[in-house]
C-alpha cells in the first residue's frame, strides 16, 4: 500500500517554483473513467491557498469531471472508476480524498461547491442560507440570524434582500439566486470553494458581480473555478490550468499563460477559443 510519504515523493515531479507549503489540493496522477471512457488522464495539478485557479478548456475536455472529483460528487455516477490520489491539506489536517477513512459528507462540507445553474430550495431566503448549517451543529435563533446576515453580506446580497428574508427564494433574480447559492455554501464554512461555470447562465452584470465577489472571497478561501470564458479567466485567475481531452496541456500563472504560453495548443485556444486536441 502506498503511504503518504510515497505520495509526497511523487509530487517531487511537479514544477519546483510552486510553494508546496501553501498547497491545498494536490492531484497526483489522477485518472477517471466512466465505464470504458477515460475522462481524466494522469492529472498532476496543485491548487494553492487563497488563489483563484481557473480551469479552462473546450467543451467535453473533462473540466466538470475534474472539479466534481475534488469533492467526490462523482461517486454515485454510473460506471465511475478512479485511479491515483487527491490530497486535501485542510486547516487542521491532511486527508486523502478517496481514502476509505475519509467521510465524503464531511469532506463536502469543507470543500463547498456551486453549480452552473442556480438551484435554490423551496422555502425562504433565510431557510436557504441555513440549509446546510443545520446539520453541522445546533444554533440559537440569534446565531442563525447572524449566520444569515454575515453570509448574505459576504456575497453582497444583504442590502438587496435584508427586508425580504422570509420571501420565497425562487422569486429572486437568477443572478441573486446564484449569489444566494454561494452564501449557502459559505455558511457551512468551507475551506475550498469549487465553482462549475457559475456565471454561464447569468447576464453580464450578474457575472461581473460574481467575479468581483470571487476577488474578495479569495482572501479567505481557495477558489477553483471552471470556465469556458477566456476573458473571464484573464480577469480573475491567479493560476490557470488548460486542459484538453482529459489531459493537462499547460498550467501556470495567468501572466505566464497569457503572455508566454509554452504549448502551441494553449496559444491557439487562448487566441481563437478553439483547439485540436
Amino acid at each position: 500500500m502506498r503511504t503518504t510519504e510515497d505520495r509526497k515523493r511523487d509530487f517531487s515531479e511537479l514544477p519546483e517554483d510552486e510553494d508546496t507549503v501553501d498547497t491545498v489540493i494536490e492531484m497526483n496522477r489522477f485518472n477517471v473513467w466512466y465505464h470504458d471512457f477515460h475522462v481524466l488522464k494522469d492529472f498532476h495539478v496543485r491548487f494553492q491557498k487563497q488563489q483563484i485557479a481557473c480551469i479552462i478548456g473546450p467543451s467535453g475536455s473533462g473540466k466538470s469531471t475534474l472539479i466534481r472529483s475534488i469533492n467526490r460528487m462523482n461517486d454515485d455516477m454510473d460506471g465511475f472508476f478512479y485511479q491515483g490520489d487527491i490530497l486535501f491539506h485542510g486547516h487542521t489536517h491532511t486527508c486523502s480524498v478517496y481514502h476509505t477513512s475519509t467521510n465524503a459528507n464531511h469532506l463536502r462540507a469543507r470543500i463547498g461547491m456551486v453549480f452552473q445553474k442556480p438551484c435554490v430550495f423551496p422555502g425562504s431566503v433565510y431557510e436557504n442560507v441555513l440549509f446546510g448549517v443545520k446539520y453541522v451543529k445546533r444554533h440559537s435563533k440569534h446565531e442563525k440570524q447572524c449566520i444569515v446576515e454575515e453570509n448574505l453580506k459576504a456575497v453582497s446580497l444583504w442590502d438587496e434582500v435584508s427586508n425580504r428574508l422570509q420571501e420565497k427564494a425562487a422569486v429572486l433574480s437568477i443572478g441573486q439566486q446564484q449569489r444566494l447559492c454561494l452564501a449557502r455554501t459559505l455558511a457551512v464554512k468551507p475551506e475550498v470553494i469549487l465553482l462549475d461555470e457559475p456565471t454561464s447562465s447569468l447576464d453580464p452584470l450578474s457575472t461581473l458581480a460574481i467575479e468581483n465577489l470571487m476577488l474578495q472571497l479569495k482572501k479567505r478561501y481557495t477558489i477553483i473555478f471552471v470556465t469556458h470564458n477566456i476573458a473571464q479567466a484573464r480577469r480573475i485567475a491567479d493560476f490557470i490550468v488548460f486542459m484538453c481531452d482529459g489531459k493537462v496541456i499547460e498550467q501556470g500563472t495567468r501572466k505566464k499563460l497569457f503572455s508566454n504560453p509554452e504549448n502551441q495548443q494553449t496559444k491557439e485556444y487562448l487566441s481563437d477559443e478553439y483547439c485540436e486536441c
Partner: peptide
C-alpha cells in the same frame, strides 16, 4: 441538481 446541491453542502 437539487440532490447534488444538498450533497455538496455536506448532507448525507
Amino acid at each position: 441538481i437539487y440532490r447534488e446541491s444538498a450533497l455538496a453542502l455536506g448532507l448525507d
